[in-house]
Structure formats: structure tokens, C-alpha cells
Amino acid sequence: MFIMIFLKLAIGFLGLWVITFVIGKKEIGQITPLDFFTAILLSEIVGNTIYDDNVTYLHLIYALFLWMLFSYSIEKLSNHFIQFRRLTEGRAVLLVDKGEINQKLLQACKLDFNQLIVMLREKEIFDFSEVAYVLYETNGKISVIKKPEYEYVRIKDLGLQVKQESPSIPVIEKGQILLDTIRGIKMNEVHIRSMAKEQGFTEIKEIAYAEYNQEENKLVIIKKR
């Protein structure tokens, strides 16, 4: 009995992990209604089979595989067919147009004025007169365009020249070299060791953490204590 529960829990954990990577990772704020439904159903599939003696771990594997196949197929169809994506994810709704609230669409989205004002405050907008357009996105958040006179001044508006920054890349952690911490960026171990040596670190084990700064072509190093 206990061995079977352990096997089911282990399979459920690994299965959900695999499904997450197969169908894609999203932040909580990006979850669509389909993703929410998927999460609930997966929890039911795993939860209801753990303590049911009539359901073996093979049944659990089969159920997880089928749901992964369904979810993967829906994701692929959504990516290839716009109409199908609209069906599964919905469409953005224009709640405010040129400063005027569309009350019919607001009600259709099951929102009221107070909820809209709260979401605007979360965008650091405390005066509705500043708003020109509001889009209610499929993930339940809003995107806002302010009226021109209330927009922040941008650097290009001032005619200033700026240099585009690029992300720093973690390359060393706890004395170990990391070559592919960011998917799509591959680091060279020889180059990492060379830069560390130039900064006085002959042994990588002496470094607790290091990031590679692409603009300056050097490491930002935190030494072990």
C-alpha cells in the first residue's frame, strides 16, 4: 500500500514536471482559461489516483500521457490557427476608447467601475482623466495608453544618444562554471577562466557567484567568504 502511494506520487510529480516543459511555462499572470482548466484537471487526475487501490500507477501514467497529448495538440493548433487561438484564449477587449468607458463591454467582461479603477491604480494611474485607451487582456490584466499630455518624456524625445544594455549572464555559482544558464546564450569555459584570472582569481572555487557583463566584457565577481 505504502509502496504504491510512493510510486504514484513520484510518477505524478515527474509527469507534471514533464508536462510543464512540453506544453510551455507561463507565469501566473499569463495563464489563460485553458491553462487554468488544465491545472485543475491535472490535480484531480493525480490526487484522485493516489489513494485509490483500484487505480494502478500504469493507469496514472496513461492518464497523464493522454492529457499531455491533448494539451500539446491544443497549443500547436493555437499557434498555427488564429481562429482556434481566439476560441481557446479569447481576445483583448477595448474597455476605454478615447477616454470613454464602453459600459456594455465592461459588463460583458464581468467587471464594474470600481474594479477598473483598482486595476488602473495598480498601473499607478490615480486620475481617470489621464486615460485614453484601456485594453482588457486575455490574462485578466489591463494595458493602458495615457493621453499625450500625461505621458512620460522619453529619452528619444530629448534627442539624447543612449547605449542599448544587454542582460548579464550568470556564469559561476558556488565555485562551479555555468555555460548555459540562459537558453540561447552559450558561454565559453576558457573565456570565463581567462576573465577570472585577469581579475586575480586563479581558482574558480574561490568564487561564490559571478555574472558576465557583455558591454564591458568582464565578470562581476562575489568572492567566497
Rank of each mutant, 00 (worst) to 15 (best):
Q107Y: 14
D180E: 12
K146R: 11
F21W: 12
I28Y: 05
F81Q: 04
L160G: 12
V220I: 09
Q161I: 14
L95D: 14
V190I: 14
K110E: 00
I23A: 05
T32A: 01
R121E: 04
E89I: 05
A208S: 08
I192P: 07
A208F: 07
E165G: 15
Q199H: 04
I221R: 04
L7Y: 15
M195Q: 14
M187Q: 06
L105R: 15
I31C: 11
H191M: 12
A132M: 11
Y62L: 13
E211F: 02
F113G: 07
I19T: 10
I5V: 07
N79E: 14
S194P: 00
L9A: 06
L120E: 04
V93F: 04
G184H: 07
K110P: 01
Q107K: 15
Q115K: 14
L34N: 09
Q161D: 03
G140F: 08
L111W: 06
L69Y: 07
T56K: 08
I3R: 08
L111Q: 03
D53Y: 09
L87E: 01
V46S: 03
F2C: 14
A132E: 14
K197N: 13
I61R: 08
G90A: 08
E203Q: 14
M1S: 10
K186C: 00
V93S: 05
Y72G: 04
F37Y: 09
T181Y: 05
S194C: 05
E198G: 03
I40T: 11
K104L: 03
I192K: 10
L87T: 13
M4A: 11
F128C: 01
S143A: 14
N139P: 13
Y136L: 03
Y150T: 03
F81D: 11
Y212I: 00
W17E: 04
N54G: 10
I125E: 00
K224N: 07
L41Q: 02
L106T: 11
N79I: 09
I5D: 01
V118K: 08
V162F: 12
E198C: 06
R85A: 12
L60Q: 11
N102S: 05
F36D: 08
G12L: 07
R183C: 01
K76T: 07
Q161P: 03
Q103N: 10
Q176S: 02
S71M: 13
R85Q: 10
M195S: 12
K110V: 10
I74P: 02
E206F: 08
G184A: 09
R183W: 01
R91L: 15
S73P: 07
L9P: 00
V134W: 00
V171A: 12
N217S: 13
G24A: 13
G159H: 01
L105C: 10
M187G: 00
Q199N: 00
Q30W: 07
K163E: 09
S194G: 04
I74N: 01
L58C: 12
I3K: 14
K218F: 06
V93Y: 06
N139H: 11
L7E: 08
K26N: 07
A196L: 03
P167N: 13
L120G: 05
I74L: 09
E149C: 04
T20D: 14
T20W: 12
V96F: 11
R85V: 06
N213V: 08
V46Y: 00
I125T: 00
I145C: 13
F37A: 12
L34S: 08
V55Y: 10
I11F: 04
K8I: 02
K141E: 10
T32Y: 05
A196N: 05
